[in-house]
């Protein structure tokens, strides 16, 4: 129960954070030189046409008034209307967020499924072959630019080998599965449509791998170093001296202790994955928020930029809260 009260307190504390973020984003996006109205009507349009667009979107009002209007809408769940496509921003985000979320989730699973075992192996067999392999994988991962990696993956697996599709979430001719979670792989699975599941999954592999690689490297290194630190602890000697098997010593006694720094880094990575999918989405023509926000920035679509930033910040806050809650389960010394 104490943990529920804690979660509630943290959610309350998130409100001023999000208000702060909204003010900052509002100021910065409006400080960018340029006039969205002019961008809409084109360079040859008359002054009157520009003015009428400005009026239509309330851009002729002073900044504080614009902000208050925006916030008044926000309280009722209205994120405004996109200047670019005249659709409500909430509708756009609902369309694009699931794609990004699916990509991020797949990358995270990949990061953890490969990074944790690789890190443990590297720690247990320190300075032996497994460790060197893990080190090379990590260094390459950290130092490979995402755009280059994405292009190389496309070149190899799409163009030359034709093993995997190169763009989008599904083939152009396929219809998406019934919308349950918005994650195509999961929805296809729930619908029992194996062909579609295969298709959605094969579309997901390259972008997910591309997006995860940097964080995979980071997680591998963190797991390795925290594992090495934990394996030097007295209670590990105790566990060995008690006749427990090596697997039990490593996977039970050492692993749970090494998870705390790993969870911290995973939380940070997840936040970055969500916000950092822009390059990957662009390369693989993945219809997610990253691509949406780039287009919005290019056309100075303030409501869209604001909407994206707020959603991303809320996700950050939620992830950090999740991390803190997991800490309490991992470490009995942490009490909220």
């Amino acid at each position: 129960m104490r943990i529920l009260a804690y979660i509630f307190r943290r959610l309350l504390a998130a409100i001023p954070v999000l208000v702060g973020v909204s003010i900052l984003t509002f100021l910065i996006s409006h400080a960018i030189p340029g006039d969205p109205a002019r961008l809409i009507v084109g360079p040859k349009a008359s002054k009157e046409a520009v003015e009428s667009i400005r009026k239509e979107h309330g851009l002729d009002k002073p900044l504080p008034v614009q902000y208050v209007r925006y916030m008044a809408g926000l309280v009722t769940g209205d994120l405004g209307q996109s200047i670019r496509n005249h659709r409500p921003v909430t509708r756009d985000l609902a369309d694009y967020f699931p794609a990004t979320f699916e990509l991020t989730l797949a990358s995270l699973v990949l990061c953890l499924a490969v990074g944790i075992p690789l890190g443990i192996l590297a720690a247990v067999r320190r300075n032996r072959l497994a460790d060197h392999v893990a080190r090379v994988v990590s260094v390459v991962g950290v130092s490979t630019p995402v755009f280059w990696l994405g292009l190389m993956l496309l070149l190899l697996f799409y163009r030359h080998l034709s093993w995997l599709p190169g763009s989008g979430r599904l083939d152009v001719t396929s219809a998406p599965p019934a919308d349950i979670t918005g994650l195509y792989v999961l929805d296809a699975l729930l619908a029992g449509d194996w062909a579609l599941l295969r298709e959605a999954a094969s579309h997901l592999i390259l972008p997910a791998f591309c997006l995860s690689y940097v964080y995979l490297a980071v997680i591998t290194r963190i797991v390795r170093s925290s594992m090495i630190a934990v394996l030097g602890q007295d209670y590990i000697v105790t566990a060995r001296a008690n006749g427990l098997s090596a697997a039990r010593v490593v996977l039970k006694h050492a692993f749970k202790n090494s998870l705390i720094p790993t969870v911290t880094i995973t939380g940070l990575s997840l936040g970055e994955l969500l916000g950092g999918a822009i390059l990957t989405e662009t390369i693989f023509a993945w219809p997610g928020m990253g691509k949406y926000v780039v287009d919005s920035v290019n056309s100075l679509d303030f409501p869209a930029i604001m909407g994206f930033t707020l959603v991303a910040s809320a996700a950050y806050v939620a992830i950090n809260l999740g991390v803190d809650v997991i800490y309490a389960f991992l470490n009995p010394r942490i009490r909220y």
Partner: peptide, 29 residues
């Protein structure tokens, strides 16, 4: 180990695993 020959250590603070209960660790042995 732990059955015919056992060992206790200098630091009782650090020789028990902090993230498991005493019961969990004792039953395991």
């Amino acid at each position: 180990r732990g059955e015919r020959i056992s060992m206790i250590f200098q630091e009782p603070m650090s020789s028990l695993n902090p993230v498991f209960t005493v019961g969990n660790q004792m039953r395991e042995v």
